[in-house]
Nucleic acid binder design. Structure first.
Lengths: 199, 199
DNA sequence: CGATATGTTCTCTTTTTGTTCTCGGCAGAA
DNA sequence: TTCTGCCGAGAACAAAAAGAGAACATATCG
């Protein structure tokens, strides 16, 4: 059995709403979206969707609609493929969805907003957000949040020198690496991700 | 079991308050925030939250509310502050959490993995992911996924010329803008975000 | 200690939300 | 044409939730 137009629209709206808000809408909200006044009519659509097995309804509960199994992972986006200059979009096999929470969300992580251009050659621009994992040590070459003399916090590449001192290397041709004794530099975290929103 | 709107609002306020002040608010403060007079009503919400396992309440204690471990939202990260070269980390007031789902997860969006260096001057590197919103038109200057002659897909800045033709502008000094008649260029989406994982 | 603030429990009323129903309009099929 | 299915409006009702506020218990602080 297939859905009518209105039932399909209701279902589409439901999925989008849940993706955006994490909870189901009220019947009134669905009615507003469909441009109708009657909650009763909406209820009939929901009954049809429940009948088709697409949703489950908890009786008498506000927002008591659940999407069944379906593709309702909240934090996933479809990963369509690879794009390159001069090539058509290439599909990526065996990976059709990317879970952003697995990408970024772990314990002991936090977000910093970046000001300044010291990492611009690594594609970390002024205004970008970086995801930082709390750590007091880091491997050579990693991007770290370092606190110098308990005063200045910076974002730099870490380089350990043979004599035990530490060099903090910016990713910006106009800036110079700075060398410090190990005691002056305290590592606060390691950059594990970066993101940016355009609008 | 899921939360009602008011319970959710109470919970959101709690999390923000704790992040800001380090301690839980009083019932009166919660009531003020919700715009109601009754502490009793607030208490009922707290009971529901405790029932859901999101908080623990120490009886009769002022500010005796604790957030449970499980109350860490899966898709939010604490936004600690701003980091700049040569400055300590600066706390950002009134914004304690960043919801990555609000940032990225919307209907009609998908992710592409970028190959190539054509947008490197905009901080979009080889291997980065871009979040694309499906669209057939775009405003001048926006980064778009464009299909040329139904064959080649590229990531470029859009520039509309006065004669109606379209110029696709790479963000790479070594590459040149390319001009096409409007009929040859089909816009498939607008880049609304970008992210990258380092390990 | 007393005074005040805060949390707890309770009842009552109002509002919101979901549920069920009837009615009529409309379009396409028989 | 009639019949049927889908749609929308809205009334009436039930359940849940919200809000107010009183009364009391406990904590906190001078």
């Amino acid at each position: 059995m297939s859905l009518t137009d209105r039932q399909q629209q209701t279902y589409d709206y439901l999925r989008g709403y849940v993706a955006r808000h994490g909870v189901a809408p009220k019947l009134r909200e669905i009615a507003d979206h469909l441009g109708i006044q009657s909650r009763g009519t909406v209820h009939r659509y929901l009954a049809a969707l429940a009948d088709a097995g697409l949703i489950e309804v908890e009786p008498d509960r506000a927002r008591g609609i659940r999407l069944t199994d379906s593709s309702v992972k909240r934090f996933t986006l479809p990963l369509v493929g690879r794009i390159a200059a001069g090539q058509p979009i290439e599909a990526i096999p065996d990976q059709d969805e990317i879970d952003l929470s697995e990408f970024f969300i772990r314990p002991n992580r936090f977000v910093l907003k970046v000001t300044g251009d010291s990492m611009i050659d690594d594609g970390i621009l002024d205004g970008d957000m970086v995801v930082v994992e709390q750590a007091s040590t880091a491997r050579d070459g990693e991007i770290v949040v370092a606190l110098i003399d308990n005063e200045e916090a910076t974002l730099k590449h870490l380089r350990r020198n043979v004599d035990g001192s530490i060099t903090l290397v910016p990713a910006n041709k106009n800036l110079s690496p700075m060398r410090y004794s190990a005691s002056r530099v305290q590592i606060q975290g390691i950059v594990v991700g970066q993101f940016r929103a355009y609008r």
